[in-house]
Every structure is written in structure tokens, then in C-alpha cells.
Amino acid sequence: MQSIIFQNATVFTGDSFLSGASVRISDGYIQEISENGNIPATDSGTVVDLQGDYLLPGMIDLQLYGGSNLFLNDIPTPETVRHIYESHRRNGTTTLLPTIHSTSLDIMLQSMAAVAIVRDENPFGVPGIHIEGPYFNPIKRGAHSMAYVRTPAEGELETLFGSNADVIRILTLAPEILTNEQLATLQRLKHPDTRLSLGHSNATYQQAMNAFDSGFPLATHLYNAMRGFESREPGIVGAVFDHASVHASVIADGYHCHPVAIRTAYRLLGERMFLISDALFANPPRPNFSLGEFVVHFEPDTHGPGRYVNNEGNLAGSALTLIDCVRVAVDQAGIPLSNALRMATAIPAELIGLGNQLGKIKPGYVANLIQTNQTLAVKNVWTTTF
């Protein structure tokens, strides 16, 4: 990446806003920030006047499934992964984990191999894959196909982690359906960079707390496809709220969670909450999609981005990108902008072990940046590859 100096920017550093600031990037990294805008131009560099617009770290989305028209489960190839990345990158998501929903072991392995190839090409853009399922509690499978939801077959975990194990950044599963032996095998075989996430689970409060205390640092899409909070059985939602360190993702699309539920989670979790898009497709969303028993259609909404539902009427994913979720969190749930931005940048970066390289505008960080106006409409995106 050539040297670029951004001037007259409202910079979100990852912690706070700087008005009228300048930022210099070169060789793919952020080199310098001046709060008073005094970074002199050079003959070899390009000067970009942002005219007061926001300069933000690129969004980091840890759960999405497709791009404009290709879906990883359907075509598990490097070309699909690249398409997914480009579809979301132009909307400001500069780092993402392509996600597959419950499927066969063969498709899981093909998807992992495809993501590994693109990860090697673009390690800060596609650092790995999120495998969501198939080891779910059938009661909480949501839109996942019953044809694939299962407990691991004999030797399946060994095969899953037998190659490209380092590409699995998040594995979502329901711990209560696995035996103690299977859980021990999972912990033994998984790569140190793999984060286990509790999701699509009917675990009790105590079962969830036990999981959080023994190797599950994450919970997938809070409130959705998990045992809810009740007065006599606080369930998984209660365990997430009550635990000291577990982090939970939230789909802030206006459909999966009511704004009050998002605001409540923010007040209780604070920095332990992060945003995901859960996007099936985007730019624009496909009207219909079928993959075996996985059949969904898009329901437009004049008051929002619309949503995907399956043929049983269950929510099956969103139709937006992560910057839209930030906007929903701010405009509908009342979360301060700086906090909502952290939930889409610095916090997810930290959760996948890249917090010292991504998610902030600071010297030494990768220069994945976006320009938006004051309503968070994306105007420009700058990314780098190494």
C-alpha cells in the first residue's frame, strides 16, 4: 500500500474520537496520528481530505455465511471465500470469519481447506473459519437442518482436527449433548487458536456455567437458539449475564433481538458483548435459497433491512453487514457510538487473538480503514494484504 495521509478526519482510535486529526499509513500499517492535524505531506504520498468524516477501523465480523450470491456451504471453494470477503469488504467489513452451518463432515473439511488457502493469501482479512454446528441440541437447532444436527460419530473429531485445525477460529456447539470423554477429546485435539462457543443449546444455568469455566469463552448469538432466562432456571442467558468473563455475540439487526434486549445485554455485559451480522447474503440479498433441507426466503421490510426465514418460519439469518448492526445498536438500542464501534472492531479482534494488530487506529496496527459520514454510510474502504 502506498503512503497515504488522511487529513481533517474524525478518527475513532478504538478507544475515543479525535476531531480534526490526521493519520499517515504506509507499507500496510498505520505509522502516525496527529491530533492537531500536523502531518506534512510528502512528494511520494497521497493526501486525502476527509472533510470531517469518520475514519474508523475496519469492521470485524465473526459470523456470516455468504456474499452477494455465493454461499460457503453450497460451494466450499476458495473462489467463494474470496467472493464473500469482497462482498462485505465494500461495506466496511475488512476482517471476517466465513461461517458454515450444520452440514456433513466432508463439506466441513472442504470449507476449512478453502478458507485456509485464502487465509494464507489474506491473513488479516480472512484469518479463519467459524464452524457453527452440527453438534447441536436438536431442541435448539433453529433453522439448521435436522438431517445434519448430530453428536460426533466415532472418530469424527479426530478427522475434523486432522488437517487445517489451525483455521478453525470459532467452533459453536452445545456442550450438553457431548459426553465427558468427547469434551475432553475436543479440548485435546483443537488448535490453541480455536475458541469454543456455546450455542444452539438447551443447557441449564449450571451446565452453561460449567462449560464457561472449562474451556468455552464465548456464547453464540445471545438470546437466540439457547435456553432463556426464567425465575427458577436462569438458563444460558442467565449464565452469560452472571459469568465473570464469557463474551457473547449479539445479532443487532432489529429482528433477532428487540432493542431493549440489546440494551439490557449491553448494560450487563459491557465489554463482554460484541456484534455479528449473521448475514446469509448481502448487496443485495438473494430472494430465495435452497440447499438440501435448508430452504430460506427473504422477507423485505419497509422499516428495516429485511430478514431470512426458513420454510418453518424460523429466523435463518440476516441480510445486512456489520456497519448496519452498529447503526441499529446506536439508533435503536441507545448504545453510545464509541461502545458500539468497539463491539464491531477492537473486541472481536481481541477475541480471535488479533487485538494487537487489528481493530484500532494506532501506530503499528494494520491499515484496514473505512471512511463513513456521520450516519455511518460507508464512503471509502482501504485494506492491505501481506
Rank of each mutant, 00 (worst) to 15 (best):
Y365H: 12
T375W: 06
H256W: 00
Q374V: 15
H83L: 06
P76E: 06
E312H: 15
R272S: 00
L50F: 10
H144A: 09
N314L: 03
L109P: 02
H221C: 00
A316L: 04
L109Q: 09
T385S: 15
A244Q: 09
A248G: 06
V381D: 11
I361K: 08
Y266E: 04
Q206I: 10
G28N: 09
E121Y: 08
T385W: 10
A252Q: 00
G92Y: 11
A282K: 11
L72S: 05
R272K: 09
I117V: 15
I131R: 06
W382I: 14
S277I: 00
F212S: 12
A116P: 07
V296E: 01
R272F: 00
L351G: 02
T302P: 06
L280R: 10
D61M: 02
I30M: 13
I131D: 04
I107K: 08
V126N: 06
A349W: 04
V23H: 10
N373G: 07
S26M: 13
E32Y: 07
M343V: 01
R195G: 01
G199V: 01
A340D: 01
R227K: 14
V246S: 05
N8S: 08
T151M: 12
H191P: 03
H297I: 07
I75Q: 12
T94I: 05
D15K: 11
D43H: 13
G162V: 12
A261L: 01
L280P: 04
Q110M: 04
L280S: 05
